[in-house]
Amino acid sequence: MKKSKNKLNKVVVIALFVILVVYAISMLFPLLWGFLTSLKSSLDFDTLRNVLGFPDMEYSNDTFFKLSNYTSMFKDINLSRSVSFFAGNEEIIHNSENTVWTMLFNSLFYALGGSLVSAFVTMCMAYLCAKYKVKAAKWIYGMVIVTMTIPTVGSYPSTITLLRSLNLYDSWLGYFFQKFHFGGMYFLLFYAFYETLSDAYCEAAEIDGASQLRIMFSVIIPLSMTIFSTVTLIVFVQLWNDYQTPLLYMPTKPTLAFGIHYFTNKTVSGGFAERGEPGKIALCMLLAIPVLILFIALKDKIMGNITIGGIKG
């Protein structure tokens, strides 16, 4: 009896292992292929259609040995962005010249700042709704669910008009204002965490005479650090890869993700664009590498203890 159980267990584990290996190959092969392609020249890949093979030494000499698709990125990419609009009756003009370095910095600020702000605000709101027995808390929770179901159409022109009139368009202040929100999956995540958190912590602090503010900052937030840092890291990655929001709301502060979208979709002319598909793929690789390193280094932190089980109400 025990023998057959062991055998069954072994078979199941091996089967799962095989499936996962296949999946892993399906993930890693395209990435490796992408990297190899980024070492080919446009003539090699696009015109001569050397899709599968090793870079042709006659045509891809520079791109392979001197990594010229990558060096060209830093040398040739100079994105000129400008925007001018009216904030009320005042004319505002923004200009910027952006190299890959500028875009990298913008990405960092955008992703780090945005993730910290939105995770923090979401955390606080979730705590308040979960722990405070106020009717409004239930309404706010309900609102979160409702907003997740409504497909909002045509809000872009209205948002732009609003941001411009407040002079929050194309500005970091405006960006953080937009990020000062709660809602979505992470609200539910924090909410579930706080629901299961014992009331004993708060009660003990109350007995000691601590104010509500004190309780929140000295007791609750430290307890939430693990889940907070996990959420921040996940949102950081999402914002790092987000090209839509910079495209729509921060035109003169392009992030690297926006840069990639720009070069892959808008087929611009000039220097870097002549690098064709391999150049675009090289840019994609550049976007992926920092987060990959970050992820591998902080893997256990990200894969920390979060769950959204047990939602009530």
Binding site: I92, I93, H94, N95, S96, L116, L173, F176, I221, P222
Partner: peptide, 25 residues
């Protein structure tokens, strides 16, 4: 917690600083 405050403060000042970059030409 104090660390968070410091970070937030730093971010805020950075924001103000960057706000002036690229205005007008």
């Amino acid at each position: 917690m104090k660390k968070t405050n410091k970070i937030l403060a730093a971010l805020l000042s950075l924001t103000m600083g960057l706000g002036f970059v690229g205005c007008g030409s």
